[in-house]
Each structure stands twice: as C-alpha cells, then as structure tokens.
Design a binder for these strands. Sequence first.
DNA 1: TTTAGCTCAATTTTT
DNA 2: TTGAGCTAAA
Length: 759
Amino acid sequence: MVFDPILAALNERQAEAVQRTAGPLIVLAGAGSGKTKMLTSRIAYLIDRCDVPAHHILAVTFTNKAAGEMKDRVGRILKIGFGSDPWSSGPWMGTPEIGTFHSVCLRILRREGVLTPFSRPFVIYDDSDQLSLIKTVVEKLGIDDKQFSPKALQAGINGLKCDAIEPHELRPEHHNLFDRQLKRVYEQYQKDLFANNAIDFGEILCMTYRILRDHPDVRRRYQERFRYIHVDEYQDTNRAQYLLLSMLAKAEFGGHQNICVVGDEDQSIYKWRGADIRNILDFERDYPGAQVVKLEQNYRSSQNIIRAASQVIRNNSQRKDKTLFTENEEGELLRRFQVADERAEAELVVSEIRRLSGEGSRNYGDFSIFYRTNAQSRQFEDVLRREKIAYQIVGGLRFYDRKEIKDVLCYFKAILNPTDSISLKRILNVPARGIGKTTIDKLEELQLRLEGADSNLWSALGMAARDPSITSAATARKLAAFVGMIEKFMLEQPRLRLSELYHLVLDETGYVRELRKEGTDEALARIENLEEFDTLLQEFEEDLLGPLPVEDQAARFRELLAIFLEQSALVSEPEPGKAVQDLGPSVKLMTLHSSKGLEFPVVFLVGMEEGLFPSIKGWEPESEEDIEEERRLCYVGITRAREILYLTHATMRRIWGNFNYQEPARFLDEIPGGLVTYRDLSRAARPMAAPVRSASYFDEHDQRDEGDSIEGRWLEHPEYGRGKIVASEGSGMEIRVTIDFAGSGRRKFLWRYVSAYLR
DNA sequence: TTTAGCTCAATTTTT
DNA sequence: TTGAGCTAAA
C-alpha cells in the first residue's frame, strides 16, 4: 500500500470511517476517541485523494467553536485558507462548506430570498427579542398573561419549531386550554415576526426545511451541490434538523446518499431542548444499508477514569453497544470526598487546587470545577477570590447579551430595518428621553389601526411625530426628535464605517454621557464594555475590508452593517481579538453541560447528591428516561478528566434558604469501589465512616475486576505504618482489603476506612 | 416618569 | 436565598 500521510495519522477504525466515503455512514465516536480528527481527515481525504471538488462537501456542527476548529484543521491538512467570503455574491466555490446548522441555513435563505416572506433585509431575533414579541402578541390577542405566561408560550412555540410543526398543523379541538391559546399565539407570532422582517433561531431551520420540502427544483440544486454531507454531534439533532438533513441527503435525483453522521448516544444531554436521541439510535433504520463504524479507543483519560465512566454508563438502557477502552496508563484512583456542607466543599476543592498546584508541575489552568446548576458556582467563587486564585466562569453572561451591547445592537438593527418594531421599542426611551409607557401604549394602539405594510411602530412613530393631537405637543416634539435622529443614522449609514456609525450613535444619543453621570461601578463597567465593543467593530472591519483595494472599501459600507448584525446574532462571544488581554492560567468553573467537548488534567465533579445531581423535579415522579439523561451528563463529566478526578458530595446543603440533608448520588455507587478512595470529612472529629447504602449494582452483576485496581498499592496507616495491599474481596462499599505490614504482618480492613491512607 | 417595595419562581443553553 | 419583573407611591 502506498504511504498516505492522512491515513497514517489515524488508527484502524478512524481510517475505516475516512475511507468509507460512499453511502450512509454512522460513526459512533466515544468520548475522546478522535472524532474531530476523523471528520477533518475525511474531508481532506475526499478532496485530496478522491478528487471531490471542495464545494461539494458540507459539514454541519452545532457551535461556532466546533465549526471554527474544523475549518482550522481541514485548512491545515490541505494548506488552504477559509476566506470568510462574507460578501456572498460570488459562487460558493473553492472550499468545503463548514458551518453551524444556523449559518448554513441562513446562507441558503439569503440565496433563496425570493421564497422567503421578507420584504427587506431581515434581522435575527434572539430569545429575549422573541419573548418581547410574544408579549405584544399576547396583549394584542387579549390573552391573560397570568394564566398563560409569555415564557411558557415561548417554550411551547420553540418546542413546536424544534419538531418543525407549523401552527396550522395543530388541531385545537383535540387540545387543552393551553394548547388552544398556544396555537393562536403561535399563528399571530409568525405573522408579526415576518411583518417585522425578523426571524428567530428555530425559524431559520424550519423555513429552510420548508423551502427545500416545497420546491423540488431548489432541493435538487442543493442535493447536487452538497454531495458529501457530514454531521457532527448527531445525537443532539432535533426533528427539524433531522428533516432538513433528509431533504439534502434524500438522493431522489439519482444521487448517492453520502451522509456521514458522527455522534455518541452516551453524550446526548440536550433532550430538554429538543434533541431527539432516536435520531442516532434509529439511523440504520432511516438509512437502510448504512455502514457503522465505532471509535472506541480513548486517547484522553487514564484507565481508571475510563473504567469508572464505562461502569456508570452501562446502567443506561437507551444506548448502542459500544465499549470505551484506552491504552493509557492505569493512573490514579478517583478521589471521593464527603463534606459537611457546600461551604466545606468549596474549601476542600480550593485547598486541593492549592496543594496540587504547589507541587509544581501544574498551573491553575489545569483545574476545572463542574457543577449541575449555575447557582452552585457562588461558593467556589467566594473562596477562590479570597485565596486570590485566578478563575474564570465558562459560559456565563454572553458578551452580546449585556444590556449596553444589546442596546447598541438594537440601534443598529433599527437603522438597518426600521420595520423591526421590537428593536425600535427597546431603544425608544434608552437613554431616557421622556417617552414613557403611556406614549408607547398609544403608539402601539395606532400601529394596530394602520393597514398592511404600514402596520409597524416606525410608521406609527412618524405619524405621531407629525400630529400632536395623537399624543401631546411636548411628546410629539420628543418623538420627532427621535425619528429625526434615526433618519439621520439611516441616511449616513451607507457612507460610514461601522465604527464611525457607532460613534455617531453614541454621540447623538448621549449614551455614554448618561452612564458617566450615573457614576456607579456598574456604569463604569458598562462603559468599558462599550469601549471593547468599539475595538471589536474595528477589528471586524479590518478583517472584512482589509483585503479589498482602498477604492472598493467605501462601496461595501452599506453591506457591512447587515453582515455584522448577522454575526453578532449567531455568535455568543466575539472572536478573541488582539484587544482582549490574556489573563494567564485560571481555574475554570462551569456547568456539566458546558463541559462537553472540553478536557482537563484535573476535574472536580461537585455536588454529587441525589436531587441535585441527578436533578429531580420535585413535583413529578422521577422517570427512568430523565435519570438516564442525568447519567449521560455524569458520563460526560467523568470523561473530561485526563489524570485526576475528584467526586464530592455534601451531607447537608442549603437550597433556596432551606437546609437539606442530602443522599450521595446514585452514580457514586455505580463506580466500582476499587477505583476510588473515599474520605468522609463531614464528621471530622470521629473516625471515618461511609454511609451504608442498599445493595449496590455490583451485588447483582458480575464484576471480577472490582478490586483489581487497588491490589499491589502501598499505603501508610497511622497505627500500623507502611503496608502493601495483597488481596481484595467483596464489592461496592463493602470491599475488604488484606494489607501486609512490614512490622506487624497481615491485617484485613474495610477499603473505605483505609483508602485515604493510600500514598 | 421614575423608584421603591413586593411577589413569585427557581436545572441544564446554543444558535 | 436570590433575582427579576411588576404594581403602587413620589
């Protein structure tokens, strides 16, 4: 066989997945098994070895981060660059299409603009814009927002959009009171959304799906275009994404069904947001003749960590037959700690971080703390701050979600698209210019009376500004000033760079001046964010305009705004530009959900208590399905760790101001006792004791290697001195070990009593 | 029109 | 317990 550097870098299974290019293929990729490596190699292989023109290749991911990484790696293998081609006027040629579901769909929507209901460039509504619009719809329809909360209706609408269900498909006669209102609101919401020339996240996918479904000619074009389809994190796809993919992979025009999906059913943790685990479990049924490749070798974690993870996840019934293994070293035992309460938990974790980082080879960036709920982060932050240890919360408040940034973005959106009533309403009185609720109510009332295309807030504003009898002379003057200001922005926009437009907006509105007047720490932080936003705009422009000849740059100013708005809607964090300083290594704090896809040498999995993790909704009986999702979450957490894994749980925890006595998480019992050391710090004065639990999993299943990991290890007993473990028996919390002490011969102990003496 | 007190709810989150 | 969002007073 000819030496091939692409294949040579892969293991046998990975290489198999790369080479099976024809027909449907499902790759079941365990945690840390080199899935991205396989995917990127496959794309490179198709282009470089199979001579597939790059533009025939499509790869979709869920996050920008994943898409960026994939582009990076494909680019490096093939030594090509991905010009962002934001001008989108040219043909899609030259590079594979790699992007998120949403960015790919938006590109299709823009190309097929005539098939959309929009009359001008559309803006993207995020969840809070969406909620605002739903509130206006609820009010317009005279629905009681106490009985039917806009939030619940929003969840309902988004749930339906995840399933690609349109309002007319809902038959009210079969539904309860809520569903009947939901149908009404959904119907009106869609109308108003489109009238605002706006689209929400769910609709981006649904609309694309409908266009492909309803227009065979268009469908055909995209099927011929995307001949090799790759889908990352397939276990997280929802119904709408599934249907969308089937439109592209249908192969009804003599095509080839070259669809390669990659995923891990054991890491499916987004059911609550519409992900349908059946998509991955049923792939072989949906695509008859599909080939299956399993990537089971883990390159990330120690033996002990992989064993623990495998034993936990094997308790799930909803999974495929897949077993992770590793050739890495056995490594350290897992470390389980019981502590008195959440405060003690934080103290323990931070002192361990101190201790390990003091030993030399590790810095703070090697540690991470995973919790089930965001509320748990506070204790850790308090102690870390007190100890002056650098830390960073991953996935907190997103940059573009900050109030001041959203305000500015709404000015931008209104300038681009004044029919966007939601954005207009948001900025109407920001900063305060004396336009209050009464006035807004009158404007909205007027808007409802206006006909057709004029039925929007902008038109209403114009009328009220000209006609003082609608409000009052004073108010009409204020409105006229506002309208005049926005018109000025719209007029200037095509002649200005974004950063210039930005400064014009800040100057004319006096936004920063108002914040200065406020003078609080919070206001100052806002000003700083606005400054960062300025830098970000300049970098954005430089990236886009830089490559163009100077004389062409000004010609692009008009488009700049639309492109920027689209990016800011689809991206949660701006690209880490040169402006953002590196703060050095820091401990990372995050929810278990945010930890997916990451890895750390040392992981602390905290709050492992029944009710908290697994999380249990008090008001309904726990379902096996929900527990399995929590177990997958636990599996994700464990498999993030490379070398050392801590598992902590508190005896008592304050939740919503109440003291709760907590039971250890059931997942702790599912980890073979021989893989962990256990230490009870919750009753420090008394000898260590573990809570005795009911029969563990291992009493009913064969578990030959239960104590294997501990035999041969040395420990230092406070009474008997140095000794070696020569034998073990029993299982779970009842493992007994025989220790051979140098001075006093052999003795038997319960493992949980002596595990902490391991050296 | 702004602000202070009150109620009410309360996993997980990317696009 | 915390916080966001909303109704009653300045």
